[in-house]
Design a binder for these strands. Structure first.
Lengths: 236, 236
DNA sequence: TCTGGTGTTTGCGGTAGCGCAAAACGGGCC
DNA sequence: GGCCCGTTTTGCGCTACCGCAAACACCAGA
């Protein structure tokens, strides 16, 4: 069993209100695991045998249709939990999780959850908070997809990524894990072609700088303006 | 304080694993309230002072953009909770709730939640389950909006409503609360015009029968087929 | 250094669905 | 019964975006 430094995770929202001793006990139930870039952590539809806390790296959660199309549910940043199928009482994972960067995770067996929750009710309360926040974000995303056009949705998506996983540069913010046009398309409900066209446009205006699996927001402020302007005040 | 018959609510998922005595104690903290059709229960952005359990009627939760567009987050059926802003640690309601039919609700002050959860941890666990399920439904909706076209999305939306709040008829299923074209548009990310056109088409094929704020699915089975067929096998 | 493969760019139609506008409908209320 | 108002229907043009296809760039590995 891996020894985990409690000080690294003690401040996480998941463990709010949990005493150091309790935290130690919780962590003793976990093991840690490493996933290299582009390896699957679990597959949609598979038995939900574990749940996870990401320590290092980045994980992409995606949902696939029967016909093979995918959407990105979210990108998981270090410190966040994922694979919480048991939270919704599901026996199978509703999405596929894949490491987009070399990643390190803590892994608990799903079977440990009921016991942990019983001993440490704060875990349930904290998880409820997390899931509730995600639900709200999800609604915001639906709202955007319903009311905004593609360019604004892409702007929002990139700004969110920058906020969650942005690396500050001298001039601009870089999204610090590999992400392609197709991924952005799957976050915003469009196609990689359209994403490419729009990013090209932005690039020629100096708003972004991008390449293979790489995006830098050079003018985050101007992108915020793009994101917030509504359909008709485009050419003001 | 209203006396509530515990037997009416004891079987609800929210109260799973809660003893009758505990249930009684929980209900003592609530009052009941009546909202006539088309009255607001709470407004988006208002102080989240209460949370609710719907006993009778139907409630529409909708989110509004700064520019005034709306989407329907969900329709609440009897037995479901809503207005759980505290679950996500939010001080304000993220959406507007409105009774679409004369409705009766149980109301708890938000301030009672922490105490209840502490005394009855099962409440948090059950709520986590509920919120988790909603999150998953939300993801499904995003998936649909990303990959399906309007006709299929409307088919799915109506089938979901029929399942949740359908009244069985001799021949077909009626959605048993008032719902207009605009509402369906706001559930599916389209316009009332397009909804109207599609329902007209279906009506001429005998799939549905509809009128002012009223929809009957006459051939649910055929609508399922519509919902499941993908873009290119339309004219097979 | 060359070479294969994956990711990206760009052009060019085609079209699903939007937006506006106007008419028809229908139900409630006096 | 007749009037008024909110809902629904339908026509018509338009455009944002998709879908296909081909060229292009870049990285990894031989």
């Amino acid at each position: 069993m891996a020894k985990v430094d409690t000080s690294l995770v003690a401040h996480l929202p998941l463990f709010a209100g949990v005493t150091p001793e309790a935290l130690d006990e919780i962590l003793r139930e976990a093991r840690s695991a490493r996933f290299p870039r582009n390896s699957a952590i679990f597959e949609q539809g598979a038995d939900a045998q574990s749940f996870f806390l990401l320590l290092h790296g980045h994980v992409r959660a995606a949902k696939t249709t029967p016909t093979g199309e995918q959407i990105v549910v979210r990108y998981v940043a270090p410190g966040e939990t994922f694979g919480l199928a048991m939270a919704i009482g599901a026996a199978r994972y509703p999405a596929t999780a894949m490491a987009v960067d070399d990643s390190v995770v803590l892994v608990w067996p799903t079977s440990a959850w009921p016991r942990l929750v019983e001993r440490f009710p704060a875990l349930a309360a904290n998880t409820l908070q997390t899931v509730g926040t995600r639900l709200q974000e999800s609604h915001t995303r639906i709202l955007e997809m319903s009311t905004q056009q593609v360019e604004q949705r892409i702007a929002h998506a990139l700004l969110r990524l920058a906020k969650q996983s942005g690396k500050k540069l001298d001039h601009g913010i870089e999204i610090d894990f590999p992400i392609g046009r197709q991924d952005i398309a799957q976050m915003t409900g469009t196609t990689l072609h359209t994403v490419s066209r729009i990013l090209s446009g932005w690039e020629s205006q100096g708003l972004v700088e991008s390449g293979r699996q790489r995006i830098i927001l050079r003018e985050p402020h101007k992108i915020v303006v793009l994101a917030e302007r509504n359909a008709d005040n485009g050419a003001a």
